[in-house]
Design a protein around this nucleic acid. Structure first.
Lengths: 346, 346
DNA sequence: ATAGTTTGCTTAATCGTTTAAGCGGAGGTT
DNA sequence: AACCTCCGCTTAAACGATTAAGCAAACTAT
């Protein structure tokens, strides 16, 4: 019934003053702008009465700030990213920001499109989980002076702010854990990706073997194409087991790889951990409800998300510009899938 | 280096014309607005050269359309909603819309806040998975003439557009399936909620028992408070098993309930399906990787999401206003957790 | 030649805000 | 009385686009 949308103009009219006064009052600038007490009160009353809601659009157009954050992730339907997204959403809201989420599918082209769309929607800044080959996009953002924080992944050769897990250490810990528990031939299934976090996970694995005097075999490390996980994992596992040095444990570099892997391991009727020890990155119910609960590397998702938002918001407000590069520790949650092999003396 | 943002004005200046002309040309209105061929070409070239990107804000302010959809779900970190969100995101993008997702945590207050924030951000319309006690909000949207489509849940007493699974039938099918497979005392764990979809799931369960001549016991139906799932489920299961008519199968009304339930069932060292048959709503890897894969009701997530977007977009454009109320079938995916009990003759 | 039409462009209002600048009038100072 | 300072308010430009209306010049028709 009532007017579609109440504007500052309507209030001004009803109060018999100019829109400027209304704006001052409604923005709490009554003192600085020397607004009369009575009229200020009157304006506030009318605003309340008409249930005035300022137009974000108009504000944004004027101020150049939309109070919107773009969050670029690989895929919102992946639990890791969904959880991150939730944390970011909540933390952003606490700070008065709205989040627009975009899924890049680990694809640089889609990622660029998303960035374009969102830049063009004038988001104030980005939180980005980078895709492979997206270095140029990062450079562009820097050139255009668009604030952003990289999350979970970063490019060591590009100086940027980032918040990430210490992937190297996590992986190193996982490898060491397996060795300590008596596994001798430890394989790793990772993404076939140049992304630094993946390389770090691989490096951590390799170093853990080296430091534990295990003679690494090339056939133990299997890179899987990201767009054909199911088959890639299957083939990798078959291969690892068929070699003359068959693995007795597998470290999965991501949750998705582990899910595919566990499916195949079930089909092969292998027993975890007797036939095959398992450790995986990521966390999810699957790992708890598997017949043999899975040992996993728990990333500090809440802290990662919160810190990323906090950092970005700081950049957007204080224009705090000392670079922030934060690495957080993953926690190894020991469950049954990597239990000590009693066949081996400690 | 270059100017922060290229506007229509910059182009006009460089071309030596008014902004109006530029606007006409860039919107393909050259013909209707009788713009000269040469100058049109020139404007296009300059626009390309300067890499002009129109300001969404300005456009929106003028047109009143933001080409943004608000998606209200319970929780983005729940796989069901994450998947829905992904579908909606993709489908919306295909239609030139951007999605802002908000998690209500099944809480009417949060839901109202979200709606307010997003209305105020001038989203063009909503896709909503309603929370309990949010009827008033739906009425408000109708009163304010804000287009929306309800997803997955709806209020039978409020005439609205919606896209939903046929929860009654799904549940009925699940119950019948269990009976047919020889289970005699079938319990159900549901949310303690008045939401119609939950009541329908319960009704379907009860009717399936009735129609199959099973003497329903009140102690078999357990409503669990949504904010204390873990303990609620635990107590419910304990109770169901302790009664003088202990259940031999459980139907879980949601994925989250099932996850909690399976955890507890593991702790109790009950064997599925020998000690307890299981069917659950929802789908996720858990159900496939559980030692005994879980029979589940697969909701047509992709279709649900796509249809919701399609409907909303139609409302936003054609202002198509014949009401659309769509029910879709869930598919019962039979796995080992509800296998025929051979102890019982068929 | 005169009136009418078409062509090619400009002007200016508008969307809803913010905010620098300005302008009378009241009061104070000398 | 002349000047200055505050006070309380208004004016108007700006953000970046869209679009109805208008205007001059060129062309068409009679």
């Amino acid at each position: 019934m009532s007017k579609i949308k109440v504007s500052i103009k309507d209030i001004a009219q009803k109060a018999g003053v100019s829109t400027a006064l209304v704006s001052y009052v409604l923005n709490g600038k009554e003192k600085e702008s020397r607004v009369g007490q009575e009229i200020a009160l009157k304006i506030k009353q009318i605003a309340a009465e008409l249930n005035y809601q300022p137009s974000h659009l108009a504000k944004s157009l004027r101020s150049g700030k939309t109070h919107t954050i773009g969050l670029i992730i690989a895929d919102i339907s992946n639990p890791f990213f969904a959880n991150i997204a939730r944390v970011v959403e909540d933390e952003a809201k606490r700070n008065g920001y709205t989040v627009i989420i975009g899924s890049s599918d680990e694809n640089a082209d889609k990622s660029r499109d998303l960035l374009d769309v969102l830049i063009n929607r004038q988001v104030d800044g980005f939180i980005i989980v980078s895709s492979e080959n997206s270095e140029q996009q990062i450079h562009n953002l820097k050139d255009k002076n668009i604030p952003f924080v990289l999350l979970d992944r970063y490019f060591p050769e590009i100086p940027t702010d980032f918040v990430s897990t210490d992937h190297y250490k996590a992986s190193y810990d996982a490898g060491t854990h397996l060795v300590r528990n008596g596994y001798k031939r430890i394989g790793m299934i990772a993404y076939d990706s140049h992304l630094f976090h993946m390389q770090e996970r691989i490096r951590g694995y390799r170093d853990s073997l080296r430091d534990n005097k295990i003679d690494y075999q090339n056939s133990w490390l299997k890179p899987v194409k990201i767009n054909n996980i199911e088959n890639g994992v299957k083939a990798s596992i078959d291969d690892m087991l068929a070699s003359d040095q068959p693995v007795d444990a597998i470290l999965f570099a991501t949750y998705s790889l582990a899910v595919s892997g566990l499916k195949h391991i079930n089909l092969l009727r292998l027993k975890v951990p007797e036939d095959l020890g398992i450790v995986s990155f990521g966390q999810a119910e699957v790992f708890e409800l598997y017949y043999c609960p899975i040992t996993y590397l728990k990333q500090p998702i809440v802290l990662l998300g919160q810190t990323a938002v906090e950092l970005l918001v700081k950049k957007l407000t204080n224009n705090l510009n000392e670079p922030a590069q934060i690495l957080m520790k993953a926690e190894l949650i020991e469950r049954a899938s990597s239990k000590t092999k009693y066949s081996v003396s400690a």
